[in-house]
């Protein structure tokens, strides 16, 4: 009898699989127009998407962009084929929505200047207030280019080639932006 009883690990694994399957089913249900299934998807993914939006564009636009991502996701659900996990698909969609908005935002916020001077300024400003800045806030204060590369590479795990594609830059630029961002953020570690 002992031998035929599935172990706890097996059950757990099956349960994880079942949870994933349930999400996949929710995607199918939502694609068929089921609002409650879509709400479940929203609830389980909103924190990740909102954090991404906030880090990429700042607090002021995060809510708005998050809404936009989910509205877009709803209308594009029928194109989700399940090759990737739903979370991955949604994340890609979010990055696209956020980046599509960045030109407007950049102009609006009047900080489109990605020159090295600006970066050096951020890196070497030794005010005590700066030192105690929360790490998240420090990320938001990076110039647009450096911030986007840093968020995509170090937080979200994208590679330089992918980032270069997304941002319309060359991989070398992505690498140097990343380095500048990291150098600037050293001061906000604690």
């Amino acid at each position: 009898m002992e031998l035929t009883t599935p172990g706890v690990a097996t059950l757990r694994r099956d349960l994880d699989q079942a949870t994933r399957d349930a999400e996949t089913a929710d995607v199918a249900l939502a694609a068929s127009g089921d609002g409650r299934a879509f709400e479940r998807l929203y609830r389980s993914h909103v924190a990740r998407i909102h954090s991404l939006a906030q880090r990429m564009t700042g607090e002021d636009h995060a809510d708005d962009l998050t809404q936009d991502v989910f509205v877009r996701a709803w209308s594009k659900l029928s194109t989700f084929r399940g090759e990737a996990a739903f979370g991955t698909w949604l994340h890609r969609l979010a990055v696209n929505v956020i980046l599509a908005r960045r030109t407007t935002l950049g102009t609006e916020r009047g900080r489109y200047d990605d020159s090295e001077n600006v970066l050096d300024g951020v890196a070497s400003r030794p005010h005590t207030a700066e030192l105690s800045l929360d790490f998240e806030a420090a990320i938001e204060r990076l110039p647009d280019g450096a911030r986007q590369v840093f968020v995509l590479h170090d937080i979200e795990g994208y590679r330089h080639e992918e980032i270069a594609d997304l941002l319309g830059i060359v991989p070398g630029t992505s690498k140097s932006q990343l380095h500048h961002a990291r150098m600037a953020l050293r001061r906000h570690l604690e």
Binding site: V46, V71, W74
Partner: peptide, 24 residues
């Protein structure tokens, strides 16, 4: 530090607005 950052949900529930938008 970047890899250890936590995701935090929005402070206000965005679902009602999304639901209105998509017609649910």
């Amino acid at each position: 530090r970047a890899q250890a950052l936590d995701d935090t949900p929005p402070t206000t529930d965005l679902w009602p607005a999304i639901a209105r938008h998509v017609g649910v």
